[in-house]
């Protein structure tokens, strides 16, 4: 058997059966192993520092708080670690918050969970899963930005190509199809999406700095 690097995965999910289902789906993939399962924010944070996993799968609605707190801890981790949101449906508003907190994307748990191992591996390889709904929401953030919208509304600046790609994603096109349509490789499409996530995250960081400056913390 070939030497394979095994990536450890932490699951933070309060519903027992779903957590187990995720565990078995992930362990079907050779390169992945589940190091622990936590069922609330507190446990999730403890396990995170105890096991220092490569990937954290987080449910957002947890009994003692929001999974976003775990995502923030992952963003601040001093080892390579990435968070993925597991969501039953799209639930865009909460997912956008999670993305802004630093999540690399999300996986749906409503359908078959067979593909979840593949999703996790694609994140480790640098991809960022995105759904049409999230793309639509990001586009709204761009256009509301140009209109100089209200105080609370966050905004991001996108290049024309990035906007083009988000538009196609929002209409349900897959990366491969978008690459063919625009005459670029699937990987390049993925890079663009990564950049968009990056901007979202950077944007939330600069907002935090601005807020801190206003409050006199910096």
């Amino acid at each position: 058997m070939a030497e394979t690097v095994s990536h450890s995965v932490l699951i933070v999910e309060d519903r027992r059966e779903i957590a187990l289902r995720l565990k078995s789906a992930i362990e079907k993939t050779d390169e992945l192993s589940v190091c622990a399962i936590a069922d609330d924010v507190d446990g999730g944070l403890n396990q995170l520092y105890a096991h220092r996993p490569r990937i954290v799968l987080v449910d957002l609605g947890l009994p003692d708080g929001s999974g976003i707190e775990v995502i923030k801890a992952v963003s601040g981790a001093d080892w390579t670690c990435e968070a993925l949101v597991v969501s039953i449906f799209g639930d865009e508003a909460r997912v956008i918050d999670a993305l802004r907190a630093g999540a690399r994307g999300y996986v749906l748990k409503s359908g078959s969970l067979a593909a979840i191992g593949k999703d996790v591996l694609s994140v480790i390889e640098g991809g960022s899963p995105i759904s049409p709904q999230i793309a639509r929401h990001l586009l709204a953030m761009v256009s509301s930005g140009t209109a100089g919208s209200s105080e609370g509304a966050p905004q991001i600046d996108l290049t024309n190509r990035e906007t083009e790609i988000l538009n196609a994603v929002a209409k349900g096109y897959k990366r491969r199809e978008i690459g063919e349509k625009l005459g670029i490789s699937t990987g390049t499409v993925g890079n663009h999406i990564n950049n968009i996530y990056q901007k979202l995250n950077v944007n939330s960081n600069t907002e935090a700095i601005a807020r801190a400056t206003r409050m006199g913390l910096l």
Binding site: F89, P132, Q133, A170
Partner: peptide, 29 residues
Amino acid sequence: DLSLMLDSLETDASISTLLGMLRTRLETL
């Protein structure tokens, strides 16, 4: 069906996005 209901409530402005979400859900099937 619940997914469909939630999606249609979520993105009430864009039918193309709803179709896209439908595709995402049905792809594995």
